[in-house]
Write a protein that binds this DNA or RNA. Structure first.
Lengths: 195, 195
DNA sequence: TCCCGTATATCCGGCACCGAGTATAGGGTC
DNA sequence: GACCCTATACTCGGTGCCGGATATACGGGA
């Protein structure tokens, strides 16, 4: 069986190991330090599952089993040539080919007609505020990272996310206005259904 | 145990049943007809799991077990009062509170520095084209839906998605240019690492 | 009348994922 | 030196999701 590119955590593991050999717990630490866990979902259970899977497919090797004192044994892994190839190819695919994803907000907004217009307006406004806060927080973080001397390329994904959040906020503002003023297509029927 | 709002397919089920009672297979048919499966991931296995879970939590009831001829029995479900309440509350939450999600592209682009700049440029350009095609396809679909006399509110989620795709395309165009011209922050180092 | 492809309707086994649980080491405090 | 809190490192059982398997009905052509 060929390796399945499901969990992006496996990508992170390959990327970390292409720097230097590590044991799983250390990978988690490093991801936390670098705020990588905000971009790639990390939790211990999955981490060990994913490492084992990479190992089975010979994309990484168990290079050493250290045993310092009486601590639990820790297995240090290293990436193989096949692993590096997989990393680069997967990366290319992730960037080049838009994946069909199912953002939860799309599911919600597609059914917004089930809520009374007044309720809809309220929740959309709440989201708008929340998105604004996220943008502010990101701006602060970017400031900090730039101040630490990190180049833009090191936080390019935050740049992308900010662009997306700004677009979302703009759309939300439009929708809120269109609802408030009753100019969204089908408004009359919407209001009629809820009285 | 209280019902867990994990799979949005359960939301779709509640929404469908709030129109009229249905059996699971019919729900799937209806979702397909309405292109809902593009917004909420549907597959048969999950559908039956989700319906069973809703049933266990008494958000829907098995109202009748029809048996037409010798066909497999089909269980028709109906939404309960608790189910309707759950539907509305879940909807409000989905819209009001941005969920932490992990788009695969963010994972990919965050590691783009591992690819040589020339490769990166190529894959980003490919994505830009793909996103353009998706936008074109969506525009055609919108045209068709509007032509059928459906109000904007009925395809509001497509409106949202188009806004997001446009923003993504703009960002991709910027990143491609910045890479081609070497103006992205950290470019020199990036290029140096790959020779 | 027989056959076969398609539509109807559900079921089930495997597997990835998750988060809470476990167990030891190290360091600070009284 | 007894105590306790945090950091280290991994394990494991439960659960939900998935996609292919199953089984019957129906319509149309040879």
């Amino acid at each position: 069986m060929t390796f399945k590119r499901t969990n992006p955590l496996a990508l992170a593991v390959l990327a970390l190991l292409s720097e230097r050999p590590m044991h799983p717990y250390e990978m988690a630490q490093t991801m936390r330090e670098r705020h990588q866990e905000k971009v790639i979902k990390l939790n211990y259970g999955s981490l060990y599952t994913v490492v084992e899977s990479l190992h089975r497919h010979e994309l990484i090797t168990a290079s050493a089993v250290q045993k310092a004192g009486n601590r639990p044994e820790r297995t240090v892994y290293a990436v193989t040539a096949a692993g590096t190839a997989e990393l680069h190819d997967w990366l290319r695919e992730l960037i080049a080919v838009p994946a069909r994803e199912y953002p939860r907000f799309e599911a919600g907004i597609s059914l917004v007609g089930l809520l009374p217009p007044a309720d809809a307006l309220q929740v959309v406004t709440r989201r708008e505020a929340a998105v604004g806060e996220q943008l502010a927080a990101l701006a602060v973080l970017l400031e900090k990272l730039a101040g630490m001397g990190l180049p833009q390329l090191a936080w390019i994904e935050l740049d992308y996310r900010m662009a997306m959040l700004r677009a979302e906020r703009t759309w939300l503002a439009w929708f809120a206005t269109a609802t408030r003023e009753g100019t969204v297509g089908g408004y009359q029927d919407w209001e009629d259904r809820h009285r």
